[in-house]
Design a protein around this nucleic acid. Structure first.
Lengths: 203, 203
DNA sequence: TTTCACAAACCGACTGGTCGGTATATTACC
DNA sequence: GGTAATATACCGACCAGTCGGTTTGTGAAA
């Protein structure tokens, strides 16, 4: 232990609180989870909690930030590391599939974000801008495909909206009913159909 | 006043409570709305509230029932009154558009249903069966189209899943950001594209 | 037609309990 | 000894639901 044992332990306490809170929020919802619940799950006292976070809401916002920056990283990785357009779309679909998978193991925290977004300005802005970014990212890829001659040159805005809407719709159903279908595979096939259409359609 | 003034008044009180509660739930969410809030909005005392409803939850369930049976009625109407498959799909899309429109004027109560569904078995069953019914209804229409020779004979299950997912995804985005786009028109165009694909695709 | 007993409708103060957050004490590392 | 980290006891606000009591239409007897 080279440096500061105490600070290290504190960091750990903090991340345990975050992890347990995320679990509980995803499982039972923000409102139904009390600070005491989080403390108990994390094995930390209330004083400890409020030493690390100024409020329950602040912790929630930090979870949101982490999620969004994680997704941003993924988008950047895709942008920089894929060569063909088709491959980029496939990777995007995989990311969406990953999100869907997280909804399975009690990790439906994204749903909780959307839910709170309806009633809290700050979170709302994050959520809306996230959809926007996702859609624009798809659009950028599609435009690149058009320039390559891979896709027909029309209505790309609508097509990117379709892809995001499909992902959102599938995610919501998956969050609600994880075992109702193989959602990840469904989404992949859906996107496949849209892509095929894009390639063959006449304007 | 022919019959029973008192019963009539009571009925009115009850429906005012339902209406105001629906408004408030849609606007601020189930948890954030107290029974006192509902009573105040409706101009009814707490005793009055509990005279009509056994609990806050019971009122919520009644709202859910009303919504679902309303949608069922619409589906039945479509089934019995449309002749061509294309027309049926257009009408389905209109119904979805109607739901989206309701999300605009603070009537995002459907979102509240989905949200509660995650944590309450009873509501969850309703929500899941509703998706199921919606998808099966689309499928039935598509199969009819296949028999007519209007559509190609393959993958209809996936196509009906696509349509429902699109509707759900668009609805969620519309509930979150009503003015972000003309969601109703978007959905119509999206469904149009899927239909075109269905007609022309080769298996 | 008037009276009156009854029940449905309604009222609002109150209760038991929960929850987010705070104030204060204690510990352990620097 | 001072400071960051953690613990414990506690506060005030709120909230779903209860309860004893009051109003008001109704229907039947007088």
């Amino acid at each position: 232990m080279s440096k500061n044992m105490k600070a290290q332990k504190a960091e750990e306490t903090r991340s345990i609180l975050l992890k347990e809170a995320e679990n509980l929020f995803a499982l039972r919802g923000y409102d139904a989870v009390s600070v005491d619940d989080i403390c108990q799950a994390a094995g930390v006292s209330k004083g400890g909690f409020y030493h690390h976070f100024s409020s329950k809401e602040a912790l929630f916002l930090e979870l949101l930030d982490r999620w969004l920056s994680h997704l941003d990283e993924e988008l950047l990785k895709i942008e920089s590391s894929t060569s063909t357009v088709e491959e980029a779309i496939a990777r995007m679909t995989d990311v969406a599939g990953y999100v869907i998978e997280q909804a399975e193991g009690s990790y439906g925290i994204l749903f909780e974000f959307w839910n709170k977004a309806r009633h809290e300005e700050k979170i709302w802005q994050s959520a809306v801008s996230y959809f926007e970014r996702y859609r624009k990212f798809f659009l950028k890829i599609l435009k690149k495909g058009r320039e390559n001659g891979e896709f027909q040159p029309f209505d790309l805005e609508l097509y990117s909206q379709i892809m995001v809407s499909l992902a959102v719709g599938v995610f919501l159903q998956a969050a609600l009913d994880p075992r109702g279908s193989d959602w990840k595979a469904s989404l992949r096939r859906m996107i496949g159909i849209i892509l095929k259409e894009l390639k063959s359609a006449q304007a």
